[in-house]
Amino acid sequence: MKKMYILLVTIMIFALLAGCAQPTQAPEPTKAEAEAPDTPEEPVEAPAEEPAEAPAEEPAVAPSDRLYFEVNALTSLPYFIDHRLGLEYAGHALGADTKYVGPVDYDMNAMINTLEQAVAEDPDGINIVGFDPALKPAIDAAVEQGIPVVTLDAEVYGSDRLTFLGTGNYNAGRVGAQILAEEIGSSGKVALITKVGQSNLEERIQGYKDEFAENYPDIEVVQVIDDQSDSAKAADGLKALLQREPDLAGVGCVEAAGGVGAATAVKELDMVGDVIIVSMDRDDGTLKFIEDGTIYASIAQQTALMTFIGTILMDGLMHNPVPIVKDNEAADIVPMPNIVDTGVLVITADNA
């Protein structure tokens, strides 16, 4: 009986121990879980999209403190397009303002008035086409006022201009004469077309005459036609000459209007190929006549270089003068070249 009692007590003790045993322990949370907040996170809102900013306005370009002019006449003539382009390109390179001004026709009084108006603006320099000796007093007055002046294309002899920039006109005439002479077989009758009295054109005419006289004695210049820079007058003048001289072998033209007029006349008279034409310059009309074979060749000028180099030279004189000697002013030295020859190109059907 006593053994039974001890057995029952032992069973009860084991039962109590089993009831008090610890439950299975859950795995320890990871570090990330342990650090997680007790409350669920609120969803994170995307930042509100800010309205796009209006593009910043470009600052206004401050006006330049430098101003350069070209004063011209016949400003609508296609030949002078490159004059304007050269001036504008120089202005762009220097950060300077430029103005291209002058009458659209050949009016020297209007051109002189335009020059005087340009001087009144006190510019850093003036390029001027030296059409006529009548420009001399106004050029001299500008230089006396301290404004540099350079002449382009045609010279104003005896003026106080600082530099002449242009084609070596006499040599350009000789080059034209050589090309015309070789193409007509070094002999025959020829005519020359020009605007009589304009200094640069007179030099080209003299170049033609001297080249023929010295190297092609069998070529005879039968007439110099004055076209007054008008292609219609050039055409009429050549037609009249061809009535009198039907065996005319060639025509040398020393400016663009003459070449276009000569080509028009030869084409209308159905004499293309019979009369050889050497023209001057590279305007659209001249180039078209070269392409169709009416004009054999043209002596072209590098015209844009005249205004570009002229403006650059004047800017250097005014703002960065080259020290030719220790004291240019005391030595009465103007650090500018006297003449700049901008050269010529020969245009034919091969490179038109």
Rank of each mutant, 00 (worst) to 15 (best):
M1I: 09
K3T: 14
M4P: 01
L7H: 07
L8M: 08
T10E: 13
M12G: 09
A15M: 14
Q22A: 15
Q22H: 14
Q25N: 12
P27D: 12
P37W: 05
E41G: 08
E42P: 08
P43A: 04
P47N: 08
E49T: 13
A52I: 01
A54Q: 00
E57A: 06
P59H: 03
P59E: 12
S64Y: 10
R66H: 11
Y68G: 11
V71R: 11
N72C: 12
L74T: 02
T75V: 15
H83Q: 03
L85I: 14
G86H: 02
L87T: 01
A90C: 08
G91V: 00
G95M: 02
V101S: 05
D105G: 08
Y106E: 10
M108P: 00
A110F: 12
M111W: 07
M111H: 11
L115Y: 05
E116F: 10
A118T: 00
P123W: 10
P123L: 08
V129C: 11
A134W: 06
E144S: 09
Q145K: 15
I147G: 02
V150G: 01
V150R: 03
T151D: 13
V156M: 01
R161M: 03
T163M: 09
F164D: 04
L165I: 06
V175M: 11
V175I: 15
L180W: 04
E183R: 13
G185T: 06
I193L: 09
Q206A: 14
Y208L: 01
E214T: 11
Y216I: 03
D218C: 02
I219H: 00
E220R: 09
V221C: 11
V222C: 11
Q223Y: 07
I225L: 12
A232C: 02
A232D: 14
G237L: 05
Q243K: 07
P246E: 04
D247G: 07
V251D: 01
C253H: 07
C253A: 12
V254T: 04
E255T: 00
E255C: 02
V260G: 08
G261E: 09
A265D: 02
K267A: 13
K267G: 09
E268I: 10
E268R: 12
V272D: 06
G273A: 07
I277N: 08
R282Y: 05
K288D: 15
F289P: 05
T294F: 04
Y296P: 03
I299L: 05
A300V: 06
A300C: 08
A300N: 01
T303D: 10
A304T: 06
A304G: 13
A304M: 14
T307M: 06
I309F: 11
M314T: 03
M318E: 10
H319Y: 15
V322Q: 14
K326E: 15
D327R: 01
N328L: 02
A331W: 06
P335L: 06
G343W: 05
T348H: 00
A349R: 15
A352S: 06
